[in-house]
């Protein structure tokens, strides 16, 4: 790891001020992606701005229709929150199955979606639930936030403050996980909302996305069998040492069927 300047801030404004004057500054949340990347010298920031001192980013709150999770809330805290479990049980379960206990004690929801790893879990939930990503500048709804492989709509000096999820009781997340890292080889988040079925797919392609064909089929007939007749575009699927494109296309359908089963 190359060296850098380090500063821990206690407000969003201060973090923005530092990053604007830094040559190549980066925010540090749980560090569970940032630090390994720096160790491999794939990233070499001039400044790390540690968001760990900003209290407002660690809050969980809810109202009648939604639950809002601060960007610095850890995966372990989401999994343990009674408030979140009552509002969206599938989301607690998703958080409780990210990586391993030690990773969950450090990794945060803000870091996970800002990083937008093609195999990360949270993006599927943000997309399927139509969650709102709230930054210090603006708001994004659902898949508008995720723009490509490890790419988001965030500016360099923009901080995720919180993510607001509409309360959704009938939802399920199914992932076929990499046995070493627990990242999704294919993951499907299914939510039954007032506007019909919504599906977020992760792990399968370069960037998490809405499963429109799957949604259409399930809106007509909400049963596992209706997934069978769909042809998913194999050419868009990732292919790597963990799984071929054909296998991933198959897994997306299997995960969708399991999610449907869990919701009926």
């Amino acid at each position: 790891m190359y060296n850098f300047s380090y500063e821990k801030v206690s407000s969003v404004d201060k973090a923005v001020e530092i990053i604007r004057s830094a040559e190549d500054g980066k925010f540090l949340a749980g560090g569970q992606t940032m630090l390994p990347t720096m160790k491999h010298r794939l990233a070499d920031p001039s400044n790390l701005i540690d968001l760990g001192g900003i209290k407002e980013l660690k809050e969980i709150s809810s109202d009648e229709n939604s639950v809002t999770i601060g960007a610095m809330v850890t995966h372990a805290a989401v999994a343990a929150s009674i408030e979140i479990n009552e509002a969206i049980p599938a989301l607690s379960k998703l958080a409780g199955n990210i990586g391993d206990p030690a990773v969950r004690n450090r990794g945060t929801i803000g870091g996970s979606i800002a990083n937008n790893d093609p195999a990360a879990d949270y993006p599927a939930a943000v997309i399927a639930l139509g969650a709102t990503v709230i930054t210090n500048k603006r708001e994004f709804v659902g898949d508008d936030f995720f723009t490509g492989m490890f790419e988001t709509a965030l500016d360099d000096d923009e901080i995720i403050v919180s993510v607001k999820f509409p309360k959704t009781e009938v939802a399920a997340y199914m992932k076929f996980e990499n046995p070493a890292s627990r990242y999704a080889i294919a993951g499907v988040f299914l939510a039954k909302t007032a506007d019909g079925v919504r599906i977020g797919v992760t792990g399968a392609t370069a960037c998490a996305h809405r499963g429109m064909r799957l949604e259409d089929a399930l809106n007509q007939d909400f049963s596992p069998n209706s997934v069978d007749k769909i042809d998913l575009p194999v050419e868009k699927m990732n292919s790597d040492i963990h799984a071929s494109a054909e296998y991933r296309a198959h897994l997306v359908k299997v995960m969708t069927k399991r999610a449907v089963q869990a919701c009926t």
Binding site: Q32, L35, P36, H40, A102
Partner: peptide, 28 residues
Amino acid sequence: DTSQCGACVIHVDGVSIKSCTMLAIQAE
């Protein structure tokens, strides 16, 4: 060097963490 093996697990403020994936200064 991939934060996967757990040989470095210790407890910080009562919970397990991977000490290879935390800066010393973060434990201030």
